[in-house]
Design a protein around this nucleic acid. Structure first.
Length: 648
RNA sequence: GCCCUUAUAGCUCAGCUGGUAGAGCACCUGAUUUGUAAUCAGGGGGUCGGGGGUUCGAGUCCCUCUGGGGGCACCA
């Protein structure tokens, strides 16, 4: 039998007969390792222990100590065990697919009746029985005809369709968890008992389209979570509870920031507190943009459909536009307008006023543009996805040669803004030319290279999404990471070779001829609504002092202190701080609690001692220590702290 | 838009198998002048998201519309 040589992580090389399994390799090293082994990596591919190794390779044996591999196997086996449990209980349910995802897995089933929460309990119980049975996991490679015949015979049409979608020449692997069988590319654990019986949980049921295609049947998806041990599961559940406490919809109500009501779904009613935050953020962005050489403009919200037809939006996005009809006296036809879904066509109109020279470029037009999009009912979510929103939008009209410089400047601005707002980490994704596109290959080459080069020069790394660019140009997407590790796509920088041509934007070049500029669409926050939602969740409502709606509450302890309380509030307000007096007839405990719950960063408590000494008792949110400071010192300190980051 | 689910006082929630609604907080009034996360007492407040139906009778069952939530699809 032919020999193969396997290279271990420590550099050791050993010879084995071809077809040796990873289990046999582990046993050849040490019986202890064989016992602990759960899977192996062969040339970087994660495979199960039964996998025959047929050629020279690098190999690593994994144990439960290898988190990434262990969790993948546990979650993947959970998916199979759950599917088996479901078919044990309801034999007529059809199975489809069940991948590992996030902190667990899901599995999609075809079943006439949806699963109920009680069903989940029954499934969990059955899963535990399967785990405790320690059923062996077996695998075999089947040929297509046999696999198709098998599934047709068993009445599993989704599996038959899956097989048809697997490329010819690729092995079809069958897995058995005890008597239950599933088509799967693996890898899996050696027996069901290796899945910790107390470290998984079925969380919820949801509908999901077969193959993610809205024209295909809707399946019943069950989501589950799985970890290596009970404590990890508990820690994750606790984390989820913590995340729920940060929910901006909940905090938005508690902190009296905004509300949304039935008569205007997806539209925000900003309350005084919320609007203060909004304005703070807008003022900050305006200063940053002005400093970076942008010119602010304001364009109409209601625009005749003619413009949207010219820009191409009418054809592509009419379904998602709010239409405004006007019945003008004597007019044969109603005039049809649309609420603008985006600002760019209007910005081109501003650009088009007056003849532009190459000397005018780059021209950076910014707008806090109020846009409306008729988002589908199921997609709306608090502030995160709304129908009426305001972008920190701008369009840079420039030449192809200026793309790189503009991109570099934009990167500098974006990273600085994110840092100021408390986000130190963000990822960049470069999406390159799709199959269907406008513009010559030379222009695409130039633009893609310019974007990549600008990122590299700035010292950032990026990933490429090949073919994911818009038809009109390549783009960068920026995803920031929040305090609890969630990612939010906010910033974007997109080249557009199309719209300037469609809407006739031109400039006179050095050569005296007319050219179309490139238009760079760009945003840093994305939408103010959504970004404020992200800020609230990132800070769990405890916004930085400069953004907090109510910065200071001055609370009296006895009513004899009221005049002094008002004097302090006046002094703070005169210094530009957002301060309020609380002279209600309540105990200081009550006031401290209420304003702490309301996330007020600073509470000044005032009793007779403070009145006599002309001091304040200062307490910061989250601390339960108080310090006694002279009133004037407190005003000065807090004033300094209240400066936005760009003004310090 | 699709699947599931949900909609009871300002908020959070209770209301068994159908017989015309309760609690805590909030609010108002009074007492209390209080030292850093909820002082005590009293009071007002909802016809149960809208519409339709079944029934002698519906918050409670059915249909439908609207909104919310969890996902899927969508996201210029």
């Amino acid at each position: 039998m032919a020999q193969i040589s396997l290279t271990f992580p420590d550099g050791n090389i050993r010879q084995y007969p071809a077809g040796t399994t990873a289990a046999e390799v582990a046993l050849s090293i040490a019986p202890g390792l064989a016992k602990k082994a759960i899977s192996a990596s062969v040339n970087g591919a994660h495979v199960d222990l039964q996998w025959p190794i047929t050629a020279d390779a690098k190999i690593a044996i994994h144990t439960m100590a290898d988190d990434a591999q262990a969790l993948e196997l546990i979650r993947h086996d959970c998916a199979h065990i759950m599917a088996r449990a479901v078919q044990d209980i309801w034999p007529d349910v059809k199975v489809t697919i069940g991948p590992v995802r996030d902190y667990g897995w899901f599995y999609d089933f075809d079943r006439a009746e949806p699963f109920t929460p009680e069903d989940l309990g029954a499934i969990e119980a059955r899963m535990k029985q399967i785990i405790n049975a320690r059923d062996p996991v077996k695998t075999e490679v089947w040929d297509r005809a046999r696999a198709i015949a098998y599934y047709e015979d068993r009445g599993e049409p989704f599996k038959v369709e899956l097989i048809a979608r697997i490329p010819e020449g690729e092995d079809l692997r069958m897995y058995w968890h005890g008597p239950w069988q599933d088509l799967c590319r693996g890898p899996h654990l050696a027996h069901t008992g290796q899945v910790p019986a107390d470290a998984f949980k079925l969380t919820h049921v949801a509908g999901a389209y077969w193959l993610g295609d809205a024209t295909r049947p809707m399946l019943q998806r069950i989501y589950g979570l799985a970890f290596k041990n009970r404590d990890d599961l508990k820690a994750h559940l606790t984390m989820l509870e913590e995340a729920a406490k940060r929910d901006h919809r909940k905090l938005g109500r508690e902190m009296e920031l905004f509300h949304i009501q039935d008569e205007a779904p997806g539209m925000v009613f900003w309350h005084p507190n919320g609007w203060t935050i909004y304005r703070g953020l807008e003022d900050y962005m305006r200063r940053r943009l002005m400093r970076a050489g942008y010119k602010e403009i304001k364009t109409p919200q209601v625009v005749d459909r003619v413009l949207w037809e010219k820009s191409g939006h009418w054809e592509a996005y009419r379904e998602n536009m709010f239409i405004v009809e006007v019945d003008e006296d004597g007019a044969r036809e109603k005039r049809i307008n649309a609420l603008k879904p985006m600002n760019c066509p209007c910005h081109v109109q501003v650009y088009n006023q007056g003849l532009k020279s190459y000397r005018d470029l780059p021209l950076r037009l910014a707008e806090f543009g109020s846009c409306h999009r008729y988002e589908s009912s199921g997609s709306m979510h608090g502030l995160m996805r709304v129908r009426g929103f305001t972008q920190d939008d701008a369009h840079i009209f420039c030449t192809e040669d200026q793309i790189e410089g503009e991109c570099a400047d934009f990167l500098g601005l974006l990273s600085s803004v994110y840092r100021d707002l408390g986000f130190d980490k963000f990822d960049i994704k470069l999406s390159t030319r799709p199959e269907v596109r406008v513009g010559s290959d030379e222009v695409w080459d130039k633009a893609e290279t310019a974007l990549a080069k600008a990122i590299e020069m700035a010292g950032y790394s990026y990933t490429i999404n090949p073919g994911d660019g818009a038809f009109y140009g390549p783009k960068l997407d920026f995803k920031l990471t929040d305090a609890i590790g969630r990612e939010w796509q906010c910033g974007t920088f997109q080249a557009d070779f199309n719209l300037p041509v469609r809407l006739g934007a031109e400039y006179v070049g050095e050569d005296g001829a007319k050219h179309h500029p490139v238009m760079m669409h760009r945003a840093i926050l994305g939408s103010f609504e959504r970004f404020i939602g992200i800020l609230i969740e990132n800070y769990a409502g405890k916004l930085p002092f400069w953004l907090a709606a109510r910065q200071v509450v001055v609370a009296s302890i006895v009513s004899d202190a009221d005049p002094y309380v008002h004097e302090i509030v006046d002094a703070l307000r005169k210094a530009g701080l957002r301060a309020e007096a609380d002279v209600r007839n309540e105990k200081i405990n009550y006031k401290v609690r209420e304003h702490s719950v309301g996330k007020v960063p600073v509470i000044l408590a005032i009793g007779m001692k403070e009145v006599e000494e002309r001091t304040v008792s200062l307490r910061r949110l989250g601390d339960n220590i108080t310090t006694s400071v002279p009133m004037q010192t407190a005003v000065m300190t807090l004033t300094a702290e209240s400066l936005p980051p760009d003004q310090r």
